[in-house]
Computed example of a mutant assay.
Amino acid sequence: MNRKSFLKRITLGSGLIFAPFVKTESKTRTTPALLRPPRVRQGDVAAIVSPAGNLSTNGEVENAVNAVRALGLQPRLGANVGSRWGYLGGRDTERVNDLHDAFADPEVKVIFPLRGGYGTSRLLPMLDFELITRNPKAFVGFSDNTSLVLSLNAYAGLVTFYGPNAHFDWTNYTRQNLTRVIMNQQPVGLMENPVSGNGRPLLAHTTIVPGRAAGPLIGGNLSLIVQTLGTPWEIDTRGKILFFEDVNESPYRIDRMLTHLWLARKLQVAAGFAIGHITVRRDRNDDLDLASVIRDRFEPLGKPCYMGVPTGHVPNILTLPLGVNVEIDAHRGLLRTTEGAVA
């Protein structure tokens, strides 16, 4: 039995402690050609898997199924959705097998994680990128699923989508932005911010460094981005437009993570920055405000940068396609895709 067959046959009784590290030994980083998944159509099958945390409340699965149906898709639950191993949505092999099964299933056209939480980074050494490259599918998720969105893009070359998990407080804005990105082969163009009933933006932009920049889009949750540093799955920001968001973080912790990226020269080599929503928690009386932290780190770089992208742990979010070329206008707070994300 070869190594790949062995990994696929591992069961809970096998221990698993060493299993993820077996594939790590032979992993090398290359830059694959960009692979656009086939566009999703009304009536397609959508897999719901659980690669991260366990269910925190009753009704999460029902909520996810109903949300996927409201998109005009047919939900299909992974075999291990609802499993639990402490704070995780099942053992590592259960969760990664569901993900692999979804990619291998010819009827499945789009894959949604059930929720975030914690756990996707544990799966990275076990991912079968050859399988995924042979069976490209639209993968949509955010928060802890940053680990998968980034790694699938980096190692399989797959255009992935930083957007809502299946269990989410879906709004019309969120739903419409998802469908126009994954169901439309043409460039979406301007990614417009949500507006209130009187036409005012719900999330106003703040220019940090004015100017325009262009490049492939990359990013995700800031905490998860920083977690990749020093690993084979380290984020590559060279010549790219970097976006990030985070939740329940204090300004000094945001400062620490941005400084980590700066020390790793991930900020210096990026083309520009589009910063999403960051929910701030106050831990200290002498905290700086978030805008001061952002300005202190990004103004010296002199590259176009603005705050106000509707992404993050807020009700109205964009679906952002990773790997696709975009343009930003930091003075006006605009983000525009210049090519389609699906084939």
Score class of each variant (00 low, 15 high):
Val40Lys: 14
Ile328Arg: 10
Asn66Tyr: 10
Arg256Trp: 03
Ala343Ile: 08
Ala214Asn: 04
Leu335Glu: 00
Gly59His: 03
Gly157Pro: 00
Arg295Asp: 01
Gly90Ser: 10
Leu288Gln: 08
Gly323Ser: 11
Glu107Asp: 12
Lys303Ile: 09
Val247Gln: 02
Val188Ala: 07
Phe243Tyr: 15
Leu301Ala: 00
Gly333Tyr: 13
Val65Asn: 10
Ile10Gly: 10
Asn172Ser: 01
Gly312Asn: 05
Thr207Gly: 14
Ile132Asp: 05
Thr120Cys: 14
Leu34Cys: 10
Leu152Val: 08
Glu192Ser: 13
Asn193His: 12
Val342Asn: 09
Ile111Tyr: 11
Arg200Ile: 08
Asn165Phe: 03
Asn165Val: 04
Gly86Trp: 12
Thr206Ile: 14
Thr93Val: 13
Ala274Phe: 09
Pro310Gly: 04
Pro75Asn: 04
Gly72Asp: 00
Gly86Thr: 12
Arg297Thr: 10
Val108Gln: 02
Ala154Phe: 14
Ser292Pro: 02
Glu192Thr: 15
Asp92Asn: 11
Gly308Met: 08
His331Gln: 14
Gly117Glu: 12
His331Asp: 07
Arg91Ser: 13
Thr160His: 01
Asp283Trp: 10
Leu131Pro: 06
Leu16Ala: 12
Gly89Trp: 12
Leu202Pro: 08
Lys303Ser: 00
Gly272Glu: 11
Ile218Arg: 06
Ala19Gly: 12
Phe161Asn: 02
Ala47His: 05
Ala291Asn: 11
Val342Arg: 08
Thr237Trp: 15
Asp287Gly: 06
